[in-house]
């Protein structure tokens, strides 16, 4: 064992950035294996925290769907005298379409109006005997785009609609729209508040769990510094470990949520729903699942980074 052998360093393990990264990933997984109980505990805690978060998300997603269904009922009806010629009707439709916020327009002729009316009077059709459709006005039922269904937007829309000469009257259930807008604002505010608290709690729990994991290995961190490891060399495997813990934790939470959803929730009656055909809870959309996984990775990474700063004093 001559000094010459050591001075001439043996071939390095995988040169270059890719090679080092491969080493770091390998080291991170070896570390997880060597510290399995602590890692399992961390992943378990992260899973629980993410389960709460994803359950809350599931509730919000379904609440949003219900309120969206409700807001579909926001509809503006424009009445006009007599029947319009096809030319006038298409001009009118084009003018209404040009107003910002119009989604689609349905024409209800006077005959159709009478049909609907008699439909509502089922069993008492006799009341309409001898009544001609001419006593009813024809109308256009206008559905608004999603972002234009709150009270103020509807008022603005109606004001514009009233400027169109052929239209004699506009109805939109002003009181109902106002109440609905207030309710929606309340739901949104409560949702943001609850989501904010849950996210804060999750960040706090995950960051502290990772900090404890790293604290448990502070001797290892210290020793690596003492044998000449650079900051990067010490940190990178820990950061990869953090990302793995975060992603695995979030994945476990999503798997549990999927299990719970399939077992209990997918066909549960949803008491908010007006439409019984649509009853049952929706699962999280793909974008939310991807966001949760990325959130897990980011939390794991940042949690590790913040904790390492405290323990690496090199």
């Amino acid at each position: 064992m001559s000094r010459k052998n050591v001075a001439k360093r043996p071939k390095l393990a995988r040169e270059g950035v890719g090679g080092r990264l491969h080493y770091f990933v390998e080291r991170a997984f070896t570390n997880i294996r060597q510290n399995l109980p602590v890692n399992l505990l961390t992943i378990g805690t992260i899973s629980l925290a993410f389960l709460i978060l994803s359950l809350a998300l599931l509730i919000f997603v379904n609440l949003e769907r219900v309120t969206e269904t409700w807001s579909d009922r926001v509809q503006v009806t424009a009445y006009f005298e007599g029947d319009l010629s096809p030319g006038d009707l298409s001009t009118l439709k084009a003018r209404i379409k040009a107003i910002k916020g119009t989604a689609d327009i349905d024409y209800v002729s006077r005959e159709e109006a009478l049909q609907r009316f008699s439909g509502r009077l089922k069993g008492q059709e006799a009341l309409l005997e001898g009544v001609s459709y001419e006593i009813l006005p024809s109308s256009l039922e206008i559905h608004l785009k999603k972002d234009n269904r709150d009270s103020e937007a509807v008022s603005r829309y109606v004001a514009q609609l009233k400027k169109i000469p052929l239209i004699t009257e506009v109805q939109y259930g002003e009181e109902w729209v106002k109440r609905f807008s207030h309710f929606m604002n309340l739901v949104r505010f409560a949702g943001i508040l609850v989501a904010g608290f849950i996210v804060l709690a999750v960040v706090f729990i995950v960051a502290n769990t990772i900090k404890l994991t790293i604290y448990a290995r502070k001797d290892e961190l210290e020793l690596m510094g003492l044998v000449g490891a650079t900051r990067l060399f010490i940190k990178v495997p820990f950061l990869i470990e953090g990302v793995v813990q975060g992603v695995v934790g979030a994945s476990v939470a999503l798997l549990v949520l999927t299990g719970v959803y399939l077992a209990f929730l997918h066909n549960a009656d949803f008491f908010f729903s007006f439409n019984t055909i649509e009853a049952g809870l929706l699962f999280l959309p793909a974008s939310h699942i991807v966001a949760l996984l990325f959130g897990g990775a980011a939390l794991g990474f940042l949690g590790s980074l913040a904790s390492l700063k405290r323990f690496i004093s090199l």
Binding site: R9, P10, K11, L12, A13, R14
Partner: peptide
């Protein structure tokens, strides 16, 4: 001593060389 109790003797001694970037 500062030996890492969760690593084998081989891994403890190897740490010095891993830091230097030696191959396995």
């Amino acid at each position: 001593f500062k030996l890492l109790s969760n690593r084998s003797v081989l891994e403890n001694v190897a740490l010095t060389l891993e830091v230097l970037g030696w191959g396995k």
